[in-house]
């Protein structure tokens, strides 16, 4: 049997694609309530509950829940806020950074939490909205710190020869206004999209091979499902890492705007 014959014959399986990510639950079109919109609302409710419960009865010897909440907060406050923005003015950004971190983390983990099983950030609008918040914050902080003209002046490195000033200024401008916020959003989106696609492929394809395949294909199905399990574990790593990197970069961008020299 050639591959072509198999491909034309086995029309029962549709390989996963972009269509898998468009899941309207109520309505359709631009204002539809999708699985992702429900997921992010659920995440806000779950986070509110977790954080309120984790900080309710604060004790010197913390409960497990308080310990978990405190160490997550400590990671963001000290590891991302203080170490990167600097001890002088990091505190006012910690609420933003912490909110972003836990929100992204939970929404990423939704990819592998049964029933939800959908990474919210694989719909590009969600990371875009988050990146827009970061974008507005770090530019407003920069304008406040340096003034409008001073901010644009501060993006050119000192000591540059006159001939290169304009091309470098344009390069810096595009980097700050376009590349950094766009890559921030796309990095998170791409990782979640690709990761979920991979899981759908291995698990969906494995299930199809196992149930509908004949002979050796059943064996391949077992292999694919095993791979699906391995990738699920790997995805947990990616999900945590991407939440961390998004927050890290948000902190770095803010740090750049707060710093005296750019």
């Amino acid at each position: 049997m050639s591959i072509v014959a198999l491909a034309t014959e086995g029309s029962g399986y549709t390989s996963p694609g972009v269509a898998d990510f468009w899941q309207p639950l109520v309505g359709n079109g631009a204002f539809a309530i999708t699985r992702a919109s429900v997921a992010i609302l659920v995440s806000v409710a779950v986070l509110s509950w977790l954080l309120l419960a984790g900080t309710k009865r604060m004790a010197v010897v913390p409960s497990k829940r308080q310990f978990a909440t405190e160490s997550t907060y400590g990671l963001v406050r000290n590891g991302l806020g203080r170490d990167i923005i600097g001890s002088h003015d990091f505190l006012k950004f910690v609420p933003l950074l912490f909110t972003m971190f836990v929100l992204i983390l939970l929404n990423n983990l939704f990819s592998i939490i049964p029933v939800v099983q959908f990474p919210t950030m694989s719909r590009v609008a969600f990371p875009t909205a988050l990146a827009l918040v970061v974008f507005v914050v770090y530019h407003v902080v920069g304008f406040r710190k340096h003034g409008l003209v001073g901010y644009f002046k501060s993006i050119i490195p000192a000591g540059l020869s006159v001939g290169l000033m304009i091309p470098i200024f344009l390069l810096e401008l595009i980097t700050d206004l376009f590349t950094r916020p766009v890559t921030l959003a796309l990095r998170l989106f791409g990782n979640m999209f690709a990761g979920h696609l991979l899981l759908v492929l291995f698990i969906g394809g494995g299930e199809y091979l196992l149930l509908h395949g004949a002979g050796a294909f059943k064996l391949a199905g077992v292999g694919a499902l095993g791979m699906g399990f391995v990738m699920t574990v790997f995805e947990i790593l990616v999900q945590v890492l991407q939440a961390y990197i998004f927050t890290l970069l948000a902190a770095l961008y803010i740090a750049g705007a707060v710093a005296n020299d750019h």
Binding site: D83, T179, T183
Partner: peptide
């Protein structure tokens, strides 16, 4: 750890910023 903060932040910033420059240049 407070004393270490500018260095670690700056190194990470340099790495990520360089990456952004390498994208912006050819793009622009």
């Amino acid at each position: 750890s407070g004393r270490r903060e500018p260095a670690s932040g700056r190194e990470a910033d340099q790495a990520w910023r360089s990456f952004a420059y390498l994208l912006s240049g050819p793009l622009l």
